[in-house]
Design a protein around this nucleic acid. Structure first.
Lengths: 208, 208
DNA sequence: GTCTATATAGTGATAGAC
DNA sequence: GTCTATCACTATATAGAC
């Protein structure tokens, strides 16, 4: 994991990624990126021409990472086991990318252009719609089987995303307001992971 | 609701509030505030000295509004009825202040100073801790009575806040990505309100 | 109380030397 | 490929006329 062998372009990319994740697009300057990368500000523009360009390159990768995790294929076990593993993986991915939810939320809320970009390039993607369709079919089957209550697929997704993402959105706030140290923050994440899985499962189990 | 009788100071305050809610602190300029208020940029500084000062005045009121709604006293009906009404009121308040969650989240995540400020001035407030303590007692009672499953008060609160807030955080994204019009966005909020209440109730009902 | 003008510092981006 | 220097612009904040 040594950083010594990165060339200048990669250094800039890495520094930019760190700063965009910490402070968002508009609060990060190309001067600061250059400083952290250990080079001159002009070089940032030499390699990426515009700050917007640099950001988009990073943002696209992050969105991809963000969207693909939950949609992962899970075939072993019953529906509840699969849901538990899916949510678990989502939590684990975000544990390793704690600032990711804030970056994505922030940029999408602040910029209609980025929302439109996401719709055209990610949501209207055939493969992704196929994955959604498969998940929807899986749910309809479970409802018919009587294992879960009638629920809209979209609602289930939003429930999971809300509860999971908010854990990481609120992490710096909860951390400072409740004066948690690093270790306690990690415990908080694991605690929420359990609680979220529990709540989601309870929320979809069929009434008796 | 006429704006014609506002004096300059109030006009500035109102314009600033609108802009801060739309774009956050750092993306809003005093020049823009002045322009919307229909006055000169120097006047913004005449009345509020600094932009930070102006922001804090607005922010404090918003935090107060944000914190007080869920903690409202509800005495009629059983615990589930009370929870339903609490969540409903929370949704209704945010329906009338749709950008509020984003503003608060954004500024608290981006600024440690603001997090510290909240901790010292709002969380360590005796009255508010009293309210939390009462809610906690209410929950412990229900657990003992066997009406709800064992759950930590803080988890229940985070569950409600996650699900409620995310509805409004995601509203512009969901709206544009799924190409919803104004009416459909309102429906989405009401739909989520029902689903969130349902999920929370299912999530705390005691196992049989 | 309201204005114009301005001081000061920062921004993104480019030109041009090496 | 990397640097310095600089342009055009915008920001916050203040001084001073009226």
């Amino acid at each position: 994991m040594s950083e010594t062998h990165l060339n200048t372009e990669q250094q800039i990319l890495q520094s930019a990624e760190e700063l965009f994740l910490e402070k968002g697009f508009s609060n990060t300057s190309t001067t600061e990126i250059a400083k952290r990368a250990g080079c001159n500000q002009a070089l940032v523009h030499y390699y990426f021409r515009t700050k917007e360009n640099l950001f988009q390159q990073i943002f696209i990768v992050k969105i991809e990472l963000f969207l693909k995790t939950f949609m992962i294929e899970e075939n072993e076990g019953d529906f509840f086991t699969k849901m538990e593993r899916r949510i678990g993986l989502y939590f684990d991915m975000l544990s390793n990318n704690r600032k990711l939810p804030f970056l994505i939320l922030n940029e999408l809320v602040l910029s209609k252009e980025r929302r439109d970009f996401i719709r055209e390039n990610f949501i209207k993607n055939e493969g992704r719609q196929q994955i959604y369709y498969m998940f929807d079919k899986e749910i309809q089957n479970e409802i018919i089987k009587g294992t879960i209550r009638p629920i809209e697929t979209f609602d289930l997704l939003i429930n999971v995303v809300s509860l999971t993402i908010f854990t990481f959105l609120s992490l710096p706030i909860v951390g400072d307001v409740l004066e948690k140290n690093k270790e306690e923050k990690n415990e908080y994440i694991l605690h929420r992971k359990k609680e979220v899985i529990d709540l989601i499962i309870r929320g979809i189990k069929a009434d008796n």
